[in-house]
Amino acid sequence: MEKKNETIEKLTNEATFVLDDCLLLLSKDEDKLVKFVEQLISIKKEVEVEVPNPPSRKTGDLRNLKNNVVKNPPGAKIKGDVKGARRKNGREIALQARAKTKKKC
């Protein structure tokens, strides 16, 4: 099974590289690019007819989603957290320092 997945991944990567190369070569000739895209669309339609149920790209099965219970994660704690205080960035610190009234005497 591992070898089969490896082979499929290699072929998929090779097909992607070939397609990218073709698009790069045809990017300056609009007429040839239009023909190429039309050929790709016809190939895609042929593949869809031959393989009516493509494998899912997602790892999980969505039908079993109703049985899963999703819980919210606990609140994150900040390093050096003091009673819910948060770290302030340099701008906030500078604005607070500027807002304080300074003694003129």
Rank of each mutant, 00 (worst) to 15 (best):
R98N: 10
K66V: 11
Q96L: 14
P73E: 03
I43A: 12
N13R: 12
N72L: 11
V18Y: 00
G90H: 06
G80V: 02
I78K: 10
K88Y: 00
K10Y: 06
L65V: 09
D31V: 03
P52R: 06
E48H: 02
D61H: 02
G60Q: 10
K10V: 08
Q39N: 15
N72T: 09
V70P: 10
A76P: 12
L25P: 00
P73R: 14
K35I: 14
R57S: 07
T59P: 03
N72H: 06
K28S: 14
S27Q: 00
K100C: 06
Q39L: 15
V82Q: 13
D31W: 00
A76M: 12
E6G: 13
L65Y: 01
T7P: 02
L95P: 04
K10G: 01
G90P: 02
K79Y: 11
G80K: 00
K100A: 12
L62D: 15
G84S: 02
R57I: 01
K3E: 10
R98L: 15
K28G: 10
N67H: 13
V51A: 01
K102N: 07
K102C: 00
I78A: 09
K10T: 11
I8K: 09
P54K: 00
V37I: 10
R63K: 13
E38N: 05
V34G: 08
T12N: 13
I93L: 11
P74W: 01
V37F: 03
K88M: 02
E50P: 02
L24H: 03
